[in-house]
Write a protein that binds this DNA or RNA. Structure first.
Lengths: 288, 288
DNA sequence: GATTTTATGTAGTATTATTACATCAATTAC
DNA sequence: GTAATTGATGTAATAATACTACATAAAATC
């Protein structure tokens, strides 16, 4: 994010450190930012009961070129700014408040990742996955559930897929890998000793290894290619929440990539899998 | 949304119905909208190889006052417009595009749910969970991974926790439930026959049953209380993606609720669990 | 209470956008 | 095939808007 991105937030937090006149302007803006984006410097000055240069100076205080530029930043930050700020839960929060905070944090994390994901790497991972003879998902702890989820998704592609969360099984499977196998290693930190060693074993055995992990971690040095994701650890204070959602979504992206690579015919196959569930259900919900 | 809100989208859809010169301008804008918000009418005209009034006319075509106003609408629609609209992936999408679409859809789903969650129900579920003698998470298929994830989260609370994705095991466990047990049943559709029956068994055995499922589904009638979530099925065409993220996040909310209910002392306990992982890791990453 | 510093406003200047009009190209009518 | 009309585009003047340099007023410091 560029420095002056969350202009509205900046404006309200910096309110105290402004001059009296500049503060008047800031308050008028905060009072109705939408309106403010439509005003000329003259009208805004008038409403704030200050002179035009004062408005101009306020703008420059926030590191923008001038008033028109300021309005544009304002417009941007209104849409994207206020919501979705990763907030820590407070011990006194009511259900409504912490529910909102957790959802907002989840959204903020996904949004942050959305912009950071490297499409070239995604493409590359999809290349490997769609050519794999066998796919193995390895994840321990919370990543174990992610691995299981991935298995449940990739089995639809008519490739043998396994998921493990037990280090011993992983180790055995890794050693037994052959050329054509693709191993996806899931680790939030990329620093778990077992995981790193298992990745190495798999690679030595001839498998392509893909890590979904933190940037510049020991694990990402050890694999064929790394999909690097940054989780804002501040909200994951006591358990992994954000990092796991990010991994899951990224795996959704990879699965989607594989589907697209397979072409349209393949989508019939997927539809038939979904259809096979119908008999296990009550009444409606067939959805084409 | 006001008429001229999705300016970028409008711009690309209306591209064909524009004059030759105006189209040139539109293309320059679409090519780099961010950049365009920073240009003067003169520079934009130059880059588009048209005259300034042409640019001005284009702006008016989209029902805005003038060029500066246009830039502001553009800025807004960049932030709010494209994103967070649940878009289907197209077979011709490049990696960058489908990555963005999937993340955006995930965000859109979470955002939609965020506003629909009933805090009273959350509160109630937290009440049950924090008083439970034992917690059982049941989920089949993709919900199986969610159940496993939940187990991994709730085991930290010093309560016996089990997770199952096998209907037979679920059934046995359900029948063996006793007063004081809490069963959380995860089902996207709430219509899987097995799941519904298992929920009934558990309740008859004396357990409190909580469903995380679709509103007004057979399952939600069968349980002690239901946390109802609506997944936008349109993006989950071939596999459950959004619905699963929503369930996970909702379980994060419940876990957080339990933590808060336990009070500050309990947070030391959580910290010590996290600390216990340190030895399995390489070097840094202790985080307090 | 005098002096310096900081804040704010005034008036002129520069930039930027808009309008009115002219020219050119394309289409249609003859 | 040419003339007339319509629509598209550009030129140049005008108007609106924002910016700068400077002056004045207020506050803070000595």
């Amino acid at each position: 994010m560029s420095p002056a991105d969350n202009l509205l937030e900046l404006l309200s937090t910096q309110l105290d450190s402004l001059n009296r006149s500049e503060r008047k302007v800031a308050q008028v803006i905060l009072n109705d930012p939408q309106e403010a984006t439509g005003l000329s410097i003259a009208s805004l000055a008038e409403r704030s009961e200050v002179s035009e240069p004062t408005v101009n100076r306020l703008c420059r205080t926030f590191g923008v070129k001038g008033f028109p530029d300021f309005k544009i930043r304002l417009a941007q930050s209104m849409a994207t700014g206020t919501p979705y700020i990763s907030q820590s839960v407070d011990i006194n929060d009511a259900a409504e408040v912490y529910t909102d905070k957790i959802f907002s944090s989840a959204i903020a994390s996904l949004d942050a990742t959305r912009r950071k994901v490297n499409p070239t790497m995604v493409e590359k991972a999809v290349d490997f996955l769609s050519q794999a003879q066998q796919i193995l998902f390895f994840g321990m702890g919370a990543s174990g559930a992610v691995a299981q989820d991935a298995q449940h998704k990739f089995f639809r592609f008519n490739i043998p897929v396994v998921a493990h969360n037990d280090p011993l099984l992983m180790r055995m499977q890794a050693a037994a890998c052959r050329r054509g196998d693709v191993v996806v290693v899931l680790s939030f930190t990329g620093r778990t000793k077992d995981t790193i060693e298992i990745a190495r074993l798999a690679r030595e055995a001839g498998a392509v290894t893909i890590a979904v992990t933190a940037p510049d971690s020991p694990l990402s040095d050890e694999v064929s290619m790394a999909l690097e994701i940054v989780a804002p650890e501040d909200t994951d204070v006591y358990m992994p929440m954000q990092s796991r959602l990010i991994q899951l979504t990224l795996l959704d992206v990879l699965a989607t990539g594989v589907i697209l690579r397979r072409g349209e015919d393949f989508q019939d196959h997927l539809r038939s899998i979904k259809q096979s569930l119908v008999d296990t259900r009550i009444a409606p919900q067939v959805t084409d």
